[in-house]
């Protein structure tokens, strides 16, 4: 970013309490929509989706006495932009047991263009045929490029394309917080 330098301003859009409440609400909504936790598998998308999926499983366990199994998915091999740019580092995917006939809830931190979710659906169906795939995102920042919509949203956050949404989780960053980073040209 050296050619046009810009000033970065950070604005907190979810503090740790709001973060926690948003996840609790999503957990309740998942239970309500699916009539319990019996058929649910939570699939977190690397990197920040993974701790969020584990958190949702724990919350559902607290509410229902049954924690749904949690998996993680790296969608690197399924991306549609592999022809351009450096290849990202990957982590092994892990899908617990069979997802055949289950309700798989994909969990991601930020929903943006929808391309990651498209890749995640392709990746997931290589592991089996779930009865249904649902989508939970902590933040929906708009600007979809594909016909994809979330089933559960922590916060709808209107953004411009040159802004950046950073999700910090206590597991990965030591703090639960969502920050909106705005660039203003100098």
């Amino acid at each position: 970013m050296t050619p046009n330098r810009s000033i970065l301003t950070n604005r907190s859009v979810l503090n740790s309490d709001q973060f926690r409440r948003a996840l609790s609400r999503i957990a309740h909504e998942i239970l309500e929509r699916n009539g319990g936790a019996g058929e649910i598998v939570l699939i977190g998308i690397h990197t920040r989706g993974a701790p969020l999926a584990r958190r949702l499983s724990r919350l559902i366990g607290e509410f229902e006495g049954l924690s749904p199994p949690v998996g993680t998915l790296d969608v690197g091999l399924y991306r549609d932009d592999l022809a351009s740019g450096a290849k990202p580092l990957m982590r092994p995917s892990h899908v617990p047991g069979s997802i055949e006939g289950k309700v798989a809830v994909l969990v991601d931190d930020v929903l943006y263009t929808g391309r990651t979710i498209r890749a995640a659906m392709d990746a997931l169906t290589d592991f089996g045929r779930p009865k249904q795939i649902q989508l939970a995102a902590l933040v929906d920042r708009g600007h979809r490029e594909l016909p994809i919509r979330p089933d559960y949203v922590g916060k709808n956050l209107p953004t411009s394309r040159d802004e950046e949404v950073r999700v910090h989780t206590s597991e990965t960053d030591g703090l639960d917080e969502v920050v909106l980073v705005t660039r203003t040209p100098r």
Partner: peptide
């Protein structure tokens, strides 16, 4: 993706 990802050297 919003987070900077670590990547392989080109």
């Amino acid at each position: 993706m919003t987070q900077a990802v670590e990547s392989l050297a080109a």
